[in-house]
Design a protein around this nucleic acid. Sequence first.
DNA 1: TAAGTACTATCAATCGATTGCATTTTTTGT
DNA 2: ACAAAAAATGCAATCGATTGATAGTACTTA
Lengths: 342, 342
Amino acid sequence: MEKEITIYDIAKRLKLSPATVSRALNDHPAINSDTKTLITAMARQMGYRTNTFASNLRRQRTNTIGVIVPRLNSNFMSTVLAGMEKVANEASYNLIISQSLESVKKEIANAKTMFNSRVDGLLVSVAYDTDKIDHFEAFIKKGIPLLFFDRVIEHKQCTSIVIDNVKAGYDAVTHLIEQGCRRIMHVTGNLKRNVYADRLAGYQQALRQHGLPYDESLVMVTDLSQEAGTEAARRIQNMPERPDGVFVTNDFCAVCCLITLKKLGFSVPDDIAVVGFNDDPVSQVVEPDLTTIHYPGAKMGEVAAQSLINHLNGLLDIQTTNKIILHSELVVRHSSLKSSSY
Amino acid sequence: MEKEITIYDIAKRLKLSPATVSRALNDHPAINSDTKTLITAMARQMGYRTNTFASNLRRQRTNTIGVIVPRLNSNFMSTVLAGMEKVANEASYNLIISQSLESVKKEIANAKTMFNSRVDGLLVSVAYDTDKIDHFEAFIKKGIPLLFFDRVIEHKQCTSIVIDNVKAGYDAVTHLIEQGCRRIMHVTGNLKRNVYADRLAGYQQALRQHGLPYDESLVMVTDLSQEAGTEAARRIQNMPERPDGVFVTNDFCAVCCLITLKKLGFSVPDDIAVVGFNDDPVSQVVEPDLTTIHYPGAKMGEVAAQSLINHLNGLLDIQTTNKIILHSELVVRHSSLKSSSY
DNA sequence: TAAGTACTATCAATCGATTGCATTTTTTGT
DNA sequence: ACAAAAAATGCAATCGATTGATAGTACTTA
């Protein structure tokens, strides 16, 4: 455990003032470039490392971005985080990540921690049942930029990063209709969440546009877990008028549904076509492989982090950009291609 | 943007000294409990939040744990991280996460950042081709606890958290042998990494113990990507003496191999049995579902974080516990059950 | 040559919480 | 009621970097 080197040590050694050393290390224009070279060299030689606290204390910023997500361990979310980490790292920001585990209560606690850790900005994808955002008010009041991604909550002071979920839902269902489906079931999540509400809207829009009736009993709100997928398949089996297509807003759930359907003797896609959402790797593994909506996770993470950082660096004002919509697209695979259309 | 409240503001308001306020807020025994109540109440009322930098600057610790992983977005890793986050959060530590993207160079950069951020401790799973750990020496020298998990590097000053990879490999291969396999291929990753080297050792041990020859040409070192799985299947097809079993040390890679094998006309498990590693969700989706080694990711994250935190709180000395081995087990599914044994 | 300009570098205050030591207040025992 | 012990509080230095104001130096320019 050697002693930590400070700018004072460097200053003393070079018979300069700490102020000069500080400025030199920060590449301040008022310092002679020879002096800078000298100081930088000495700093390296002495093994100096800047003390972030002292610096933060003085500057009142942390170079840290907080991230709150429902859960870390989903393919989609970890991909988003990977994208954020990449951008943040390149801009030399640190990322503090915490998960709400889909509970508002934990989300509130996490927000408080982030607030106390004085993150420079916050990236949030809200929990399953969050409906107020009082717990983020503190950030807004203090002018700490707050940016929602994927599961967003509309707020005039916050930017949100999303895909066009209405269009995605519309595309998925239109595709099913074009494959000849006339009775399409929709398995989705909590409709409080924009992502699910919008996809439902897209579903309805597609039906309407193709002259199909909207039957509320075909919409199944679940937690989109694997069990929910299995359950959906069972329910389909027990329906008097069975659907000939199903649009599930989560790949894993869709895959479980698909597998169960097969077990129950249905032929996919001929008896019933299946479309998922997210383009999770599993969608390529299941048989038949799953038609799904490709969701640009890494991109979303990158854009979110980059926008926030640009805002922090004064390059872009988040307040003015209220919404960023990323491109998503339907990936057609075999789970939805009825043989009649080959 | 309101002014930030400090202990000085509270002190002035209550006509006390900042020292007393500080002590009261930290529940110092020398402060009268009535005074404490008074101060706590006032702090809440005024909306005080502690300034972590000032505190850190003074105390020389950060309540932050650094984590360096190869990549965030794998099922296994995100599960580990979820476990870590849970424990850290409960102990009110923050987690700074960064990914090396399997490159030593990035790993070195990340380590430097972590060092400069003065994390209180570091949790590391090394990159694909890391072979020296000079970049962690700084931590060791400074007495900053360093703990490796999963992909570990032996070091007498560091604890490592692993599963018994030799045993896992042994179990997997023994199972294949018991199913009647006599010529077993092994698709694995860089043998510099303990996890792969150990599994290979287990593979060899199982062969030896059952009187089967070790044929080096059956061991295929790859990057364990999905393409590698496909490639492995192709190679199997082109072998003069085809194997009747394959042990792949990664589920996703195994699944791709399995699917390709099927496409090439092999019957799984009858022509060739497949065993994977990790118990990734995909292993239950593929058909036939994949026999694999269940790997306790969340547990590993929890144990790693908890050990580190205990050490930091002086409850446990990391130096003495040199290695923690978690339990893993073989999960038998249909990809390896030859019909003769039904 | 005096004054003006542009560079460089320094001074000293500041960010907010912590803590060893000193001081004041309260309690205890006689 | 008073000294001694115990409890509660205050003082002031400290952690290290930053920065506005200021001073010194060298070089121009009139």
